[in-house]
Amino acid sequence: MNKLIWKKDITAEIYTWKSALWLLLTAIIYSVTCYLLLTNKELSLLDQTEMLWLLAKIIIGASLLVAIIDASSILTVEFEQETMEDLLISPLSVKDLIIGKFLTVMTVWALMYAVAVPYVLVSSAGSGLGPAFLAYIALYGTLMVGGFTLFVLGLSFLYRSFKNTLTTSLVFYLAVGIPALFSATLKANPFGSIISVANPLDAVFSSLDNILVDYHTALTANATYLASVAGFVVVAVVFLAVSVKVFDRHGIVKE
């Protein structure tokens, strides 16, 4: 059942050129980044590991942004085009619907990751960090995109409107993203360090720093960061479950 939803939504992404445009846009962003890193007078002075760290941040950041926009529309479109009622009348369960939608966004993420691979391979040539870099981007990217997608799907059930879901999701993304860009000095004070530990995006960036700059590539050396990201995914799952309960209670007609 969820496969049918996945197939329908992937077809819609192709028909409406949505995914193709996102992939083109991310490819342009990666190309510009790599071009600047290699040719810009100041940026090309960076150590290769720092270049990779910067590229990793851009890959994760761009993928999250695209996933948020995609996830904001993928469920709300069923409410706004009034197709949800017919789906719910059919034997399709809400769980299957969520799995189908979730898999669609994860497929788009997988494609974005595939676009990033050549850039990563070229940028990491000679450093010996290519495989670890790719593996950690895949791991953190999947967890973060997955977590954000679940959160956005939860919001979609509550709002049933693309505009409201997207706005709230972007505010949340900025709230998570901005502290991750704080300088090391800011993170050193007690409040900053609490935010740093609780913030999943910060944990991802810190872990990538640990892997790429300090060469701590083992999973055990990044366990704390992974726990922070996994915790975020669990919170997103709980949020989605609560949203579905609220949706079940209200039904298709919002009071």
């Binding site: 085009q81 009348i89 034997p91």
Partner: peptide, 19 residues
């Protein structure tokens, strides 16, 4: 009963226009 033999033509638009 949703899995049963009921058919519904609802008031909603309910169409995927790109299909």
């Amino acid at each position: 009963h949703r899995a049963g033999k009921i058919g519904v033509l609802s008031e909603s638009k309910g169409l995927y226009e790109w299909m």
